[in-house]
């Protein structure tokens, strides 16, 4: 995977940033308008996927190293679980305990208690999971020697 022509690379450099921005918008405004953690996370991942397609895996993995992505993946899920578990102090698992302390207001970004935070955690998890899945599918090569099957990543870690 060495990437595509310079035209594609240039256009991708501009659009990837815009796609990323749109994903971030969907995540942060998920509790006010359409979107949310999952949809936003997918779009965030798309900005990385388009970079893998245009630049190849080697360049992209510098932007988001595999070890970091694997950790972020676990951290995103844990953050969501911790938000839900903290609700047990407010009475119930998943109860919106921030809203009890700090009531939300309509059409304000910083309101709605744990919902925007949960959206961010979900987006993190979805984005890096999808990125990792795509990256593994794009870079892994299977070789077969007789009965022995080997998996080998083309990219440097």
């Amino acid at each position: 995977m060495t990437g595509m022509t310079v035209i594609v690379k240039t256009i991708t450099r501009w659009t990837a940033a815009l796609i990323f921005l749109y994903g971030a918008y969907l995540v942060l405004y998920g509790h006010l308008s359409v979107g949310g953690g999952f949809a936003g996370g997918i779009i965030l991942a798309c900005s990385y996927v388009i970079m893998i397609l245009a630049y190849g895996g080697k360049e992209t993995i510098h932007a988001l190293p595999k070890a970091v992505a694997a950790r972020l993946d676990s951290i995103g899920a844990l953050a969501f679980l911790i938000l839900a578990s903290l609700g047990m102090f407010g009475g119930f698992f998943f109860s919106n305990w921030i809203r009890d302390i700090w009531p939300g207001q309509q059409f304000r970004v910083f309101s709605a208690g744990i919902i925007p935070l949960a959206n961010i955690a979900i987006a993190l998890k979805v984005c890096v999971s999808l990125f990792l899945i795509f990256f593994i599918l794009a870079s892994l090569r299977m070789t077969r020697k007789g009965d022995k099957i080997e998996f080998r990543s083309e990219e440097v870690d």
């Binding site: 694997a70 950790r71 676990s74 951290i75 899920a77 844990l78 679980l81 839900a84 578990s85 047990m88 698992f93 998943f94």
Partner: peptide, 20 residues
Amino acid sequence: HFLLPLAIAIPLGMGFILPL
């Protein structure tokens, strides 16, 4: 039964801590 969600939350949490 207040502890009921823990039956799901404990293994789920450990499922992400142990790979780390």
